[in-house]
């Protein structure tokens, strides 16, 4: 594994407990689903091949705390599990499962009452169930950029319902694709929806 992603993951892992120990952090837990655009497009002898992830369930855990009157900073970890396949010549070949673990450093702030924007950068770790095909050389760490909206519905003094819509994009450059001659960087946009609960240590006045 490359040192930079490890350093990022370490910073996030070390940073999260720090935020949790800080005064008045907001914590949230979400369940949802993520759809991703094709992981790779290829053309062999005039035949188009698309490698596509299935819609995957996700679990998201995050924490944030205010750093300015209208800005929060936070850390977030998301795990998603789904299958992926190669589609060509009118048929689909099951390639196994993909697990993605993503770690984001976020900023968020209000747009209107109950609705907040969110933007973040981080890393995504793509882990195949089997080291084969485009993942013959194993899992890969890539850069992740995220933007989204969160909508809160007060539920109890210290709990809110939370609905999130995210549009993310990440790079994907598995070692095997580089080895066989793919050039440039593959960008993989993804869209996710999540619902969950936000826990506020400080009750709303």
């Amino acid at each position: 594994m490359r040192p930079f992603p490890i350093a990022c993951a370490a910073v996030l892992c070390v940073g999260l407990p720090g935020i949790l120990q800080a005064q008045q952090p907001d914590l949230y837990l979400q369940l949802g689903a993520v759809w991703a655009a094709p992981l790779l497009h290829d053309d062999i002898a005039g035949q188009e091949i698309t490698t596509q992830q299935s819609i995957a369930p996700l679990i998201r855990l995050g924490a944030s705390l205010p750093v300015a009157p209208k800005v929060n900073v936070g850390l977030e970890a998301t795990g998603a599990w789904g299958g992926y396949s190669a589609d060509y010549a009118g048929s689909s070949t099951d390639l196994g499962n993909l697990t993605t673990l993503s770690f984001l450093a976020n900023l968020d702030g209000p747009i209107v009452q109950r609705l907040r924007w969110r933007g973040g950068i981080g890393m995504i770790w793509t882990i195949p169930s089997e080291d084969a095909g485009i993942f013959l050389q194993g899992s890969s760490w890539n850069a992740l950029f995220s933007a989204g909206l969160d909508y809160y519905v007060p539920f109890k003094p210290t709990f809110d319902f939370m609905i999130s819509a995210r549009a993310d994009t990440h790079t994907l450059t598995p070692g095997q694709t580089t080895l066989v001659g793919f050039g440039g960087t593959q960008w993989v946009p993804q869209v996710s929806l999540g619902v969950g609960l936000r826990f506020r240590k400080a009750a709303k006045p």
């Binding site: 800005v71 747009i111 924007w117 440039g184 960087t185």
Partner: peptide
Amino acid sequence: MMRRLLPWMLLALATSCGDSAAPLRA
């Protein structure tokens, strides 16, 4: 803050449309 972040978000979305180039295998 949102106004400052918006250009960066748009830039990220614009670059996200890129595909890597498939090898020719000639």
